[in-house]
Computed example of a mutant assay.
Amino acid sequence: MTEQKKDYTMQQAALMLDVHRDTIMYWEEKGLIPPARRNQKNNYRVYNIDEVMKIAELRGIGAVDEEAVEREKIKRQLERKRKKQLAAYS
């Protein structure tokens, strides 16, 4: 059985590469990186970790922060929790 690699959104890939999502779009438009795969349901660009690492290699980015996506999720969860708490006290 083959292990399915997780797909990341363009925003998540940009977060891992520490660039703006528009930068990835620009690189793709100029042919500086291979075109992204597309989600068949919504046609959004998607990347797996190998593709993100390849982009980093092609663009001379020394490190890919694979944990950035998880940190961002935790940050957003904490923000939502704090907003709910503030709303409860209002």
Rank of each mutant, 00 (worst) to 15 (best):
L86F: 00
I33P: 00
S90G: 11
A14C: 05
V46F: 06
I24A: 00
D50E: 15
R71V: 12
R82L: 10
L15V: 05
G62T: 11
N42V: 02
R21K: 12
K5H: 03
L58D: 09
L86E: 15
P34H: 08
M10N: 09
I24Y: 03
E79Q: 13
E70N: 09
I49H: 08
D22T: 11
R80Y: 12
E51R: 05
A88T: 05
N43Y: 13
Y26Q: 14
Y47N: 07
K83T: 06
Y44K: 06
W27F: 04
E66V: 11
Y89D: 03
D18G: 10
E51F: 02
N42Y: 09
T9K: 08
E79C: 00
V64A: 00
E72T: 04
Y89F: 15
V64Q: 09
H20V: 14
R45C: 07
I74R: 12
L78D: 09
I61N: 01
G60F: 03
A63R: 15
A87C: 08
T9L: 03
V46I: 11
K84I: 13
S90H: 10
V64R: 05
A63P: 04
Y44V: 06
K75H: 13
Q40F: 12
L32T: 11
D18R: 15
R59V: 07
N42A: 11
R76D: 12
E28P: 07
K83P: 06
R45A: 00
E29H: 15
Q40Y: 15
A87S: 13
